[in-house]
């Protein structure tokens, strides 16, 4: 009772492109590429060939740690790999089965893209909240000082900053603020740029000014600030909240409760590093104090407005 089977070197023959999804050809692809791979979309190219776009499904345990609802969610990722099926002109299309490693690479890239977007939308959603945490304020202070000096035309000069650098990045902050239009430099003096001029500065109190404009700068220059200016505190907190929101957004459940151990697993999956649960407790406690998450003992869940913002900015396929 043995069947011979096709080798992956043999092209898959397809007669009816409409039957590709869920048909024999998809089964061949699944056998070689993994049971999660599926045909997401098929369309005809101008040369008569078919473009077959593959997706990938991966089951994930997204149970609520408090309700124990045992949910197995199939996370689907679209457009992980594209195959061109050759039209033989005789009513038959030929699909070359791709290498499994190439398709896995495509899935990895798509997943990384989504994680980047999660990280970015997380940063945007929580910035104004974590601004109240002392560690973040201290690190962003030089940027705030430059903004305030510009706002009040205190006669701060670039050479004075050079002479008086408190951080080796200060000069780079000036460049960034200039590029984004918050300040301009005239005869070495730092003056308000378009963005500061166009805002009615009087309506902001001293504290609100910092929160508003630093928040603004972070939204515009997040990647530069995090990666090039080494403001590690900015990349810091959303890693911890992201380890929670990653699951909540994928499950599509705002009131999902996760425990610290599950968040530790997610953190490890996202950042390749295992954090001690006491350390995580501490970070999530800080985040709860500024309303980024809600925390009840060992359990964490979303704050509704943060959830909505992160969910909007993170694609789920």
């Amino acid at each position: 009772m043995v069947t011979t089977e096709a080798s992956p070197d043999d092209a898959v023959r397809v007669q009816n492109p409409e039957a590709l999804q869920g048909g024999h050809a998809e089964t061949r692809l699944k056998r070689h590429l993994g049971r999660g791979v599926y045909v997401h979309d098929v369309h005809e190219l101008s040369n008569g060939n078919l473009e077959v776009s593959l997706g990938n499904a991966s089951p994930r345990d997204l149970s609520d740690c408090r309700d124990h609802d045992n949910v197995l969610k199939f996370i689907t990722l679209r457009d992980v790999y594209t195959i061109e099926a050759e039209n033989t002109g005789q009513g038959v299309y030929l699909i070359d089965v791709p290498d499994r490693s190439d398709v896995i690479e495509g899935i990895d890239e798509r997943e990384e893209e989504i994680r980047e977007k999660l990280d970015f939308s997380m940063a945007q959603a929580i910035y104004k909240h974590v601004y109240d945490l002392p560690a973040v304020r201290t690190q962003l202070n030089p940027i705030l000082q430059i903004l305030r000096a510009a706002r009040n035309r205190r006669g701060l000069t670039v050479s004075r900053i050079d002479d008086n650098q408190r951080s080796k990045n200060t000069r780079e902050y000036v460049e960034m603020l200039k590029n984004f239009g918050y300040i301009r430099v005239e005869d070495d003096e730092i003056l308000p740029g378009e963005r500061l001029q166009s805002a009615d500065l009087n309506k902001y109190s001293w504290d609100e000014f910092g929160r508003k404009f630093l928040g603004d700068v972070v939204q515009r220059g997040y990647v530069t600030i995090r990666d090039e200016l080494n403001l590690s505190m900015l990349g810091h907190y959303q890693k911890y909240s992201g380890a929670y929101y990653f699951d909540a957004v994928q499950r599509g459940k705002q009131d999902l409760w996760l425990d610290i151990d599950t968040i530790a697993d997610n953190f490890e999956e996202l950042h390749g590093e295992r954090k001690d649960r006491f350390y995580l407790q501490d970070k999530l406690g800080e985040l709860a104090s500024v309303n980024v998450v809600e925390k009840d003992g060992d359990y964490v869940r979303s704050e509704e407005d943060i959830y909505e913002q992160v969910a909007r900015g993170t694609p789920t396929a």
């Binding site: 997706g55 990938n56 089951p59 949910v71 197995l72 969610k73 199939f74 689907t76 789920t316």
Partner: peptide, 25 residues
């Protein structure tokens, strides 16, 4: 199977993603 199992057991609940269950075997 994943669509039907909810009626047969409450031991676990499969939930589809944006593209269903991706025809997982």
């Amino acid at each position: 199977y994943f669509e039907d199992i909810g009626q047969l057991t409450d031991n676990y609940t499969p939930e589809p993603g944006l593209d269903g269950f991706g025809r997982w075997k």
